[in-house]
């Protein structure tokens, strides 16, 4: 590297590899390549796949889960986890359906959905940050607690009869085939991407996930950051509850059953380290696209749901194991 005139020689360069090379070698590139392959495979497998309205329908397979996934990604990077997100959806949806019986209108329903999400997130957050309990245990507990409350209220009943303007959140289209949910997904992807990668807050999330002790010693208010992350995850679950309830048009206590695992799968597939400290929002976005396309493509081929989950599970293990296998081979274990 030659020095421009007037600049003094630098002892330490900022970076050795430029950003372009980094992006090319990244996990996200690998995922993107897989996404393209799946896309091509889908177009070959079914002639209906490329239809714009079909593709638009396919996005509903991931938009709600991915919205939670963004907040979950931050939470997992910070070294915590929230397994109660699907429980929060059930409770928030039940609260909305219950309020509906008293003639609460759409703005009120939305407020209730958000508030329940926030309260559930706060409950998890207080247990983890104030009492110092492990989040995996706390949220396994609240997962059953939240959904259990929903069962108590509903039994085997369902709430129906949501107002027609409430349907916009889950069934509305902003422009042509572009649904309101897809727009919301993109906006949240952008917001969370910026928060994680371009703000002090995001930097602190990484620092906490990598070394909580050193982060605390560096003056980061760790409990406050984690509390905010639990609140965010709760609110995102509330938003997902609004969209999903609107899309289904009814509330049953089994709503969004086992979504927490699909959300965590999406986040981990997106390259977020389950041990904390590493990951990106772009990875989660691509992982969401992959999971959405796989589910939809297999659906077009009339593959039953249980086979789909086998496929998703296999994909997760393959995508995580392959790079590790390559490094093992490269470091000369097999010389």
């Amino acid at each position: 590297m030659s020095l421009a005139e007037g600049t003094r020689p630098r002892n330490l360069p900022d970076r050795l590899t430029n950003r372009g090379t980094r992006v090319l070698r990244s996990w996200e590139m690998l995922l993107a390549a897989i996404a393209v392959l799946i896309f091509i495979a889908n177009t070959q497998a079914s002639p209906y796949f490329l239809d714009p309205w079909n593709l638009s329908d396919a996005t509903f397979n991931f938009t709600e889960k991915a919205m939670i996934g963004f907040a979950m990604a931050l939470l997992i990077i910070s070294g915590e986890i929230d397994l109660s997100v699907a429980g929060i959806i059930a409770l928030a949806s039940t609260a909305m359906g219950w309020a509906l019986q008293f003639g609460v209108g759409t703005p009120g329903l939305v407020a209730i959905g958000l508030a329940v999400g926030l309260i559930c997130g706060a409950f998890n957050g207080v247990l983890v940050t104030r009492l110092g309990l492990p989040s995996i245990v706390v949220t396994i507990g609240t997962m059953s607690l939240f959904r259990g409350l929903s069962y108590v209220v509903l039994g085997d009943q369902a709430f129906n009869g949501y107002p027609s303007d409430f349907a916009f959140f889950g069934r509305g289209y902003v422009f042509w085939v572009i649904s309101f949910e897809l727009v919301l997904f993109l906006i949240f992807a952008l917001i969370y991407g910026v928060v994680l990668h371009a703000t002090n807050f995001g930097r602190q999330v990484y620092a906490i996930g990598n070394n909580p002790t050193a982060a605390t010693f560096s003056g980061i208010r760790m409990q406050r950051v984690k509390m905010i992350l639990f609140l965010l995850t709760g609110v995102m679950s509330g938003i997902a509850a609004i969209c999903l309830t609107s899309r289904l048009g009814s509330t049953r206590p089994s709503i969004a059953f086992a979504w927490e695992l699909e959300v965590v799968t999406m986040v981990v597939l997106g390259g977020v380290s389950i041990l904390g400290g590493a990951g990106s929002i772009l990875g989660v976005v691509i992982a969401a696209l992959i999971m959405g396309m796989v589910t939809f493509g297999l659906g077009l081929l009339n593959v039953p749901g249980i086979v789909m989950s086998i496929f998703i599970g296999g994909l997760l293990i393959a995508v995580i194991a392959l790079p590790r296998l390559f490094t093992l081979i490269r470091t000369g274990r097999a010389s």
Binding site: R203, Y206, A207, N211, T213, A214, F217, G219, I220
Partner: peptide
């Protein structure tokens, strides 16, 4: 290693953390 540096993060991010 435990309290001072965040070893999995780059030098510049360690320096600017506080």
């Amino acid at each position: 290693g435990k309290q001072g540096a965040i070893t999995a993060m780059p030098i510049f991010q360690n320096v600017t953390l506080p």
